[in-house]
Simulated scan of single mutants.
Amino acid sequence: MPISTESPAEDQPEADSGQVAIWAEVLYLINLLVIPGLGFVLLYWLYRRNIDQAAPLDKAHLQQTLSGSIWAGVLLVLVNLLILLLGGYQGVNTWVILITYFTLCHASLVLFGAYGLAKAMSGLCWRYPLVGKPLPEGCPQKQVSL
């Protein structure tokens, strides 16, 4: 196979493009499911380390996961405040609030993360519903044809 002396096109992603996106989604899921505090710290470190020179795909997933993690933390604080306002952890409403939160909010955020991971592994951008930031310019998205 002949070796090409042409430089790669500027709009083509680098060979390792997408790895940061995958790691962002993995750390987002680790933050929600395995090690909540440490997962966020690692995700924030990855964000700060890569956001300035990131390809559009990586930048999109970094922004989405950081935004989703912050919203997950805000929702968790709000749920705890609601429990405290309605009688504390010994109150009768505690289990109703917790089950509702984990069934609707937490499960939805985990589902967004799993779908985002699948998109990152496919080399595509995806915006988290409600909590996601707008996608950056040049972000690859699959066009749906009917």
Rank of each mutant, 00 (worst) to 15 (best):
L33N: 08
A21V: 04
V20D: 01
G39P: 05
A21N: 04
Y44T: 08
E10T: 08
L32M: 11
T5D: 10
G18Y: 10
D16T: 13
L42C: 09
G37Y: 12
L33E: 12
Y44F: 15
N31V: 00
A21Y: 03
D11R: 04
V20R: 00
A9L: 14
L33W: 01
S4A: 12
P36D: 06
I30Y: 06
V20N: 01
P36T: 07
Y44M: 12
E14H: 10
T5Q: 07
A21H: 03
G37E: 08
G37Q: 07
P36I: 09
L32T: 02
Y28C: 01
L32E: 01
L32H: 02
G18K: 03
L27E: 05
W23N: 13
L27M: 11
L29K: 00
N31E: 06
D11W: 10
P8K: 03
T5C: 10
Q19L: 15
E6W: 01
L29H: 04
Y28A: 02
L42E: 05
N31C: 14
G18N: 05
I22C: 06
D16H: 08
Y44Q: 06
E10R: 07
S4W: 03
E10H: 08
E10C: 11
E25K: 04
E6F: 13
D16N: 09
L29S: 02
A15S: 10
N31L: 05
V41T: 10
